[in-house]
């Protein structure tokens, strides 16, 4: 098992170099420049333009720029934003808590609701209840999130004024008591979290429903019933346990999503999250910032995959022993 993990980590390093090289090239190949308007501004002299290009290191060959970036990144130096001169790592750090917080809560709620929905759907497959659940989750799946967000803002925030329209906190947030601050934050996050949760229910609940149905119709359930075991034990210990194995993989694969914000979503609710940071970075051709975000995303994706594999191996004895024997 340990050797397997070490080998995988070794692979990840090579993959990361590949991913970063490709992303670096793609970003630089796309038209535009961090100098933006300066390049086409007739009032700026050629001398200044050349100087600026040199400052940003854009005069060097592309491969040299990449190697410079790589040399810094192995020391965890993400460089400085071309836009405002602040360290990239600081810009990312201040955006992480909100995105992580929203995504963790969403993921938790998604599983809290989707798991039981999937299990009920499998147990009562084909029944009216099963069909009602199917319609419910697919309605959520089919609504475009920006449309649903705007609709909810229109009714709940503008018309009925139950929740605030957008933003993270109210203007007078600093003057609230501790409990008042939590309440204010919660009120602001209700809509964003609802919108991000509702759309994701379909995927997980359908997945659990299928897996649970497969488990329930497998042969070991016949044996469990032939053994005269209590119904609860058959469902939980024999069926659900096997049905949830593949869900571990989904959990692992959702790790990178935890830090990846959504542009549309954060723009509509004016939330200062990772999605908007990335969008702003791309628009300004802020190469160090884009690369920093991409590398973090790539690392999380690869680690998430590894975690999914490890989790699956720990939970499924068939794979656990195979890994140990290797």
């Amino acid at each position: 098992m340990l050797r397997f993990i070490i080998r995988r980590l070794f692979n990840i390093v090579f993959l990361l170099v590949g991913i970063s090289l490709v992303s670096f090239l793609v970003i630089h190949l796309s038209p535009g420049s961090p100098l933006g308007g300066v390049v086409f501004n007739p009032k700026v002299s050629l001398e200044v333009k050349a100087k600026l290009t040199k400052i940003y290191g854009l005069d060097k060959p592309l491969i040299q720029q990449y190697l410079d970036w790589l040399r810094r990144i192995v020391r965890f130096d993400f460089g400085v934003s071309l836009l405002d001169g602040r360290r990239v790592i600081d810009k990312i750090k201040e955006r992480i808590p909100l995105t992580l917080f929203i995504n963790l809560i969403s993921l938790f709620i998604i599983f809290l609701i989707a798991l039981p929905l999937g299990i009920i759907g499998a147990l009562k497959k084909g029944s009216g209840l099963d069909r009602a659940i199917t319609v419910f989750v697919f309605v959520g799946f089919s609504f475009p999130s920006f449309w649903l967000a705007l609709l909810l803002m229109q009714t709940l925030a503008v018309h009925w004024q139950i929740v605030p329209v957008s933003g993270l906190v109210s203007v007078d947030f600093p003057y609230y008591s501790w409990a008042g601050k939590v309440w204010d934050l919660a009120r602001h996050l209700v809509l964003p979290i609802f919108v991000s949760t509702f759309g994701a229910l379909a995927g997980i609940s359908r997945y659990v429903r299928e897996e649970m149905h497969t488990a329930l119709s497998s042969k070991f359930i016949i044996l469990a019933r032939a053994k005269g075991l209590p119904q609860r034990l058959i469902l939980l210990r024999h069926a659900l346990r096997n049905a949830l194995l593949p869900v571990i993989t989904i959990l692992g694969l959702s790790v990178p999503g935890l830090l990846g914000g959504s542009v549309i979503f954060e723009t509509i609710f004016s939330l200062p999250g990772m999605g908007r940071l990335f969008y702003e970075g791309v628009m300004a051709r802020d190469y160090p910032l884009i690369m920093g975000l991409l590398v973090i995303g790539a690392v999380l994706t690869l680690l998430g995959n590894l975690l999914a594999d490890i989790g699956y191996a720990l939970a499924d004895p068939r794979i656990r022993y195979e890994a140990e024997e290797k």
Binding site: A224, L245, D316, P317
Partner: peptide, 27 residues
């Protein structure tokens, strides 16, 4: 379920392909 549990307590089965009738994730 009550009657069938009672019945299965007295009537036992063995199947062909034992390895697919045993639960793969429980020892």
């Amino acid at each position: 379920t009550l009657s069938s549990r009672m019945l299965h307590g007295q009537i036992s089965y063995i199947f062909q392909e034992p390895s697919s009738f045993l639960n793969p994730t429980l020892n």
